[in-house]
Amino acid sequence: MPKPVPAVRAQDLLVGYGGAPVCAPVTFTLQPGRALALVGANGAGKSTVLRAVIGLLEPVKGRLEVFGSEVDEREIGFRTQVSSVLDDDAYFPSLSVAEHLYLVARGHGVRDAWDRVDELLEEFGLTEHARALPVALSSGQRRRLLLAAGFARPRSLLVLDEPEQRLDRRMHARLMERLRAEKAAGGAVLVATHDPALVRGVADRALHVDEERCELLSAEDGAALIAQVPA
């Protein structure tokens, strides 16, 4: 049987801004159906690694492949495969919550998009706010809208930047469930997080991102590290 193409393969990848790296080189492979958690202190470079993986930042050095090809978010195929939820807080002021989700689902060719939107609204506790405009939402509700949008579309790789931020306990548990289901369905998950429960409950491995040295750890060690790292 042929070996599956890794969802992400980074070899001595150096990321940063204006040619200046923000952390040590990272090397990791993420297979479909697996989850990798990026852990480390604030400003260590976790989000910068994620931005490079989704093509919003050119690597300073090293090799980075997503599903066997060099990262190029200009390619439609890349955008079909990779779903990302970063900390963007920009919305169309005149589109309601439901319409934002419909735009994503329908934009990715999902049939019966309104049915999928209704399911996601229910799951992310946004049904009551379906007709609300983004300006009327709290920061937690806007966060849930972003997360729901990440799940509204087909994907093979899900990239999340601190998805646990601004979520209550119930929503946090649902997110964990969702991410486990994602893996079971064959999707790969790459997540930057400060949440030990998320690392233990979802991730198969953890990558410690640091200025001095980046190393792969077990999920348990990754979760333990979060407790030691200063915020």
Binding site: P32, G33, F67, G77, T80, Q81, A105, G107, H108, G109, V110, R111, D112, A113, D115, R116, L120, F151, A152, R153, P154, R155, S156, L158, E182, A185, G186, G187, A188
Partner: peptide, 13 residues
């Protein structure tokens, strides 16, 4: 290039 996780049936883009 077919996505692994499909939230619903896929139609035309």
């Amino acid at each position: 290039g077919t996505p692994a996780v499909l939230p619903g049936e896929r139609g035309e883009l």
